[in-house]
């Protein structure tokens, strides 16, 4: 039984990361129907900024005296930086193509993804960069289940960000503007919403979440590499589609499902580690076969941004 619980905790942690990244895909898709391929690279940039900041603070001894402050500081700074990066990407690569066909924007997104990945490779090198992880090893054992502080940390930060996002989207005026723009861009302009600003904000919010995910992945797994955005990007995109692309709640659920399926497949199927991705995508195809719009696709309008 504790084996199952242990695996569930593992799956929850991985799923939480996927969910955070998936939100960025789904929000951008909801608002301008674009699959933002560069999103995985924003996630990687967040991971890199984290390692740069944390290594610097560690070298100054700050991580020994104020570890939690240092972590929070790095997290917030990386989120802000990536938000600005995503807004710049939007301005340079997508906004000039607002009136063009969706294919042009999609290609622009692909190009941006390659550009950012190569930019990371050129500036940060091809080697893995190690996180200062000394303070993340701890954990406790409870009823035979081992839970590390990092897992708790990832789950707590993920939950907090999800709650904040929900508040933002459903309770505030900018959230209403986002939902309105997603539903009807012309109409929302006519009720006074500056759609360019709302689109820009959507990119920024998605990127901030991805940056948080990037740092947590770096801390949890111990290192980052310039191409780290690719695989989680694909998985998170799959999660967004699984949940019903454009749907915020769907992205969260999709992320958790993909994470869980991967872990449980590796845990319970003999030599399943080899095929865990296959299982994740089989579930995706299966769900889409019966629910073509994804799990939360039915009320796609309700929570879409």
């Amino acid at each position: 039984m504790d084996y199952l619980f242990q695996q569930l905790i593992n799956g929850l942690t991985l799923g939480g990361v996927y969910a955070l990244v998936a939100l960025g895909y789904t929000m951008v898709y909801g608002i301008i129907q674009l699959i933002n391929f560069a999103h995985g690279e924003i996630f990687a940039a967040g991971g890199y900024l984290g390692v740069i900041l944390l290594s610097y603070m560690a070298s100054q001894g700050l991580m020994d005296s104020h570890p939690w402050f240092g972590l929070a500081f790095a997290l917030i700074l990386a989120m802000g930086y990536c938000a600005m990066l995503a807004m710049a990407v939007e301005k340079v690569a997508y906004k000039p193509l607002r009136q063009s066909s969706r294919l042009s924007v999609l290609l622009s997104a692909l190009g941006m993804s390659i550009f950012l990945q190569n930019g990371l490779m050129l500036t940060q090198g091809v080697y893995d960069k190690a996180y200062p992880t000394e303070f993340t090893h701890g954990g406790f054992e409870w009823l035979g289940v081992r839970v590390s502080y990092m897992q708790i940390g990832i789950l707590a930060v993920t939950a907090l960000l999800l709650v904040l996002l929900n508040t933002l989207v459903f309770k505030t005026r900018i959230g209403k503007a986002m939902r309105a723009t997603a539903q009807d861009k012309v109409m929302s302009a006519l009720v006074g919403i500056h759609s360019d600003k709302v689109i820009s904000t959507t990119f920024a919010i998605g990127a901030a979440l991805a940056a948080a995910a990037g740092i947590m992945v770096g801390l949890y797994y111990g290192s980052v590499r310039y191409d780290m955005g690719f695989v989680p990007g694909i998985k998170a995109f799959a999660a967004a589609v699984l949940g019903g692309i454009g749907n915020i709640t769907g992205a969260m659920i999709g992320g958790l499902i993909i994470g869980m399926v991967e872990i449980l497949a590796a845990a319970y199927i003999p030599a399943g580690g080899e095929y865990k991705d296959v299982f994740a995508f089989v579930i995706l195809i299966g769900v889409l076969y019966f629910m073509p719009t994804g799990i939360m696709g039915e009320n796609v309008d309700d929570t879409r941004v």
Binding site: Y3, Q6, Q7, N10, G11, T13, L14, V217, Y221, M228, F230, V231, P232, E262, I263, L264, A265, A266, A267, P270, A271, G272, G273, E274, K276, D277
Partner: peptide
């Protein structure tokens, strides 16, 4: 057991719990 993981995987928690 002789288990496999994929190249580029970051998360090995499932197989390690095993």
């Amino acid at each position: 057991a002789h288990d496999h993981v994929n190249q580029g995987d970051k998360d090995f928690s499932a197989v390690l719990t095993k």
